[in-house]
Amino acid sequence: MDAEITLTVDGQRRTVTVDTRTTLLDALRERLGVTNPKKGCDHGQCGSCTVLLDGRRHLTCLALAVAHDGAEVTTAGGLSGPDGALHPVQQAFLEHDGCQCGYCTPGQVCSAVGVLDEIRQGHASHVSEDLEAEPGLTDEEVRERMSGNLCRCGAYAGILAAVKQAGEQAGEQAGQEGAA
């Protein structure tokens, strides 16, 4: 069975007819030519296909495209500004060498944006001592929250530093805006 769906991908409205068995990942990559989300394991174990779906980090390999008709998809490629300026998370990955071969990087970057948003909203994690307290931006917290994204090169040390830096920058910016 075929179905016509419309997705907004990195700000562009795209309409495409897909077989109902098509995953969102295959629709993006094979039908729309959006190759930022990567196919790693294709079973929800590696995180390389992560995008922001309606603003939240989401695997595209474990989602049928037809079920997400109308969704807004932001890939790592859509995070930069209209002038090409890098998103703070992207910039931090560059500065801390959070990439090696680069294959997992778009998923890592999208997941990191989601992680920082979840921390900002006060969501606890498995390693948070107190479910009701504001979570900190510690190594332990970032490692736990990023555990759904694997890096076979083992660039974790750089990824950890990058996520923390981007989180600290966002926190400082929020603090300055609050004070102004």
Binding site: G47, G114, G122, A124, H126, L131, E132, S147, N149
Partner: peptide
């Protein structure tokens, strides 16, 4: 569900069980 204030306060075992499972992406789905 894990982030809901009433769950965190009144049923921490439910929030903790959720947070011990899967990954951040999968818990969003």
């Amino acid at each position: 569900l894990a982030a809901h204030p009433a769950v965190r306060r009144g049923w921490p075992v439910v929030a903790r069980a959720l947070l011990a499972g899967a990954s951040g992406q999968i818990r969003n789905q």
